[in-house]
Design a protein around this nucleic acid. Structure first.
Lengths: 349, 349
DNA sequence: AGGGGAAATGACAGCGGTGCCATCGCCCCC
DNA sequence: GGGGGCGATGGCACCGCTGTCATTTCCCCT
């Protein structure tokens, strides 16, 4: 068996099938106007040669890369992974590939880096998650490049790009209400990282629930964390050290809630009898810790899938409309998960 | 301001700098043989136009995609994410981009899918993690395509591809020794998912440590889990239900250890006094649970970085040698982390 | 019978770079 | 003084595919 050993190209297929390159191209791209007979011959040739179209060549000629980028800031935790799984699910089904890029949003050359990613790779579309979602530099670059993008959990909805989110404020509100309903009045709060959208929204929900219930927001009960376990340890300590300490603590995510729980265990509190704790996100951790954590589940994967769907939908009608107006903004449903980390407050002694 | 509004190409740069396309190409690629004067002119033109080379065109012409793929099987947990962070760190520094693809290794069309990923995208190199690491179909496809790949934690080292791992067997051995040294004799074990390499190695280490200490491996104390919390709950239950129950349990990963801990809490055991528990991997969970878990830390991120380094090193000398012989196999150091989930067994009553 | 249009196919020029080879000036050295 | 070698530059084919337009055939309608 002699013959060329290199990968077969569209030319080889055309030759074998006795068709023109262009017609083969049509079959590959499932375009119309190919007779059943011809189609079959070409498909047979493709199979026989094991032909696989070269994406690079395809992209170059068609100006479509079939690449979707996921830009994110902090690699942190299960969240990012869930997002990726969701995106991947959709990409797979629609012939797109996922390219992931971390952007150090604090670095002075975000601009250069973001631009390089978007422009060099010729990404067809981009999904943004926190905290890049709200980075004006990145957004501008995307706008300038004319690359469609979808933002997951944006600070505020924009008229130029779609978004997907849950109502975080409402979720925090409800969760706080739950604590209030149990009878808690002194409810501690640990905030998340300063520049994240979620931080603000969750805190707002907490405040509003208190206010609506006629309970004043006591600044002594509010601590500033950074969404990490370590950052929350001192917060928990300070809260529990108080003479008139809170009977419940709302941590802005599960990880920080775990720190509170650990600190409570350290002091041999029995949970939830002596202290109620709630988190946010329903990370795997939440049900693996003891006691299982009351928290709110964000359908992260579904959000990513929704984002991908929007993006892919957009891309498929490229050239017709730039954006459907108004651009879609999806709000997905969250779920409050009542587990065993919350209970009525201890009776005053 | 008239002028073309589309993205500048190498031609525009050449024109502006008064050089040939080829010379611009040389500057972009940092090749030798360009005079300082010329170099400066071209760099200025590049800056002025905001020129960004088109990766697609570049790849097509040079047969190098600058793309590294990460193929994995189960999206599970922090492990995958850490791997990605490690890979990303290196890719960023060396001008590569990371493309992630999940492969459903159980599906009948793994072959087709893997082949599509590798061949269509023209990946320059690939990093494999469990359980794809040992999938013969995928390995063959990579070999056939002549794409260099590095395997993270392979079942066994191969002569055709480099690998990176820790000595899992040894780690499990040492961890078991730790329990033995504390005085435990009845040590339960929960195995991981059947087709993962780690499952076998960890179990082997456990068995060997017992045997070396003159303790027989009791099949009644060995349960089959799947690396998930849920899968380990019934295992934990069965182990703790036994009349002569184990005084310590070795779970093949932290998540399953968390299940054991939860089940113990459920029965109001005090830990570690009544039951010692150890895990494996040192996921974030390990130090967030209560009591903090004794486990072994795999330097996952570093492993990924090492894998990327090997791969990139290889790629940079493409065309010279196919593989350095013998191919590198790195074994990174693990760390046994003694935390508060282990203690001497309770004194017999 | 002739005109019009849809279906089916092909020819060919790029897309934006890189690889290979040719060219040119210049210095070194016998 | 002429051959040899190296630094510096440019010309051009080509990577593998798609977009555009032309062409051919065939069928329907007036």
């Amino acid at each position: 068996m002699a013959g060329p050993d290199r990968k077969p190209t569209i030319i080889d297929v055309a030759r074998l099938a006795g068709a023109s390159i262009k017609t083969v191209s049509r079959v590959i791209n499932k375009e119309r106007y190919v007779s059943p007979d011809m189609q079959e011959r070409i498909e047979k040739a493709v199979a026989e040669l094991g032909y696989q179209p070269n994406m690079m060549a395809r992209s170059l000629a068609s100006e479509r890369s079939n690449l979707i980028g996921h830009l994110y800031g902090d690699a942190g935790g299960p969240y990012t992974l869930e997002i990726q799984v969701g995106l991947l699910n959709r990409c797979r089904d629609h012939g797109y590939h996922l390219m992931i890029e971390e952007i150090d949003y604090r670095s002075p050359n975000v601009e250069q880096r973001a631009s390089a990613i978007v422009n060099q790779m010729r990404l067809d579309g981009v999904v943004l998650t926190a905290p890049v979602t709200d980075n004006p530099v990145v957004l501008r670059i995307l706008e300038d490049a004319g690359v469609p993008y979808v933002r997951v959990t944006p600070q505020q909805e924009s008229e130029t790009s779609p978004s997907v989110r849950i109502d975080e404020r409402q979720a925090a509100y409800t969760l706080t209400q739950h604590l209030l309903a149990l009878g808690h009045r002194r409810i501690g709060f640990i905030k998340g990282k300063a520049n994240h959208t979620a931080t603000i929204l969750r805190y707002t929900g907490y405040c509003q629930a208190l206010t609506d219930a006629g309970v004043a927001v006591d600044p002594v009960l509010v601590e500033q964390g950074e969404f990490t376990y370590a950052s929350a340890v001192p917060c928990a300590r300070r809260l529990l050290d108080q003479h008139n300490r809170p009977t419940a603590i709302f941590a802005s995510n599960d990880e920080m809630a775990a720190a509170v729980v650990a600190e409570a265990h350290n002091r041999s509190f029995s949970l939830p009898a002596q202290l109620s704790v709630v988190g946010f996100d329903d990370t795997p951790l939440a049900e693996m810790m003891w006691p299982p954590l009351t928290t709110v589940r964000q359908p992260v994967r579904e959000m990513a899938e929704a984002a991908a769907d929007i993006l892919i939908g957009l891309l498929s009608q490229r050239g017709k409309v730039d954006w459907p107006k108004p651009v879609p903004h999806q709000v997905l449903a969250h779920t409050i998960l009542l587990r065993q980390s919350t209970a009525r407050p201890p009776v005053k002694g």
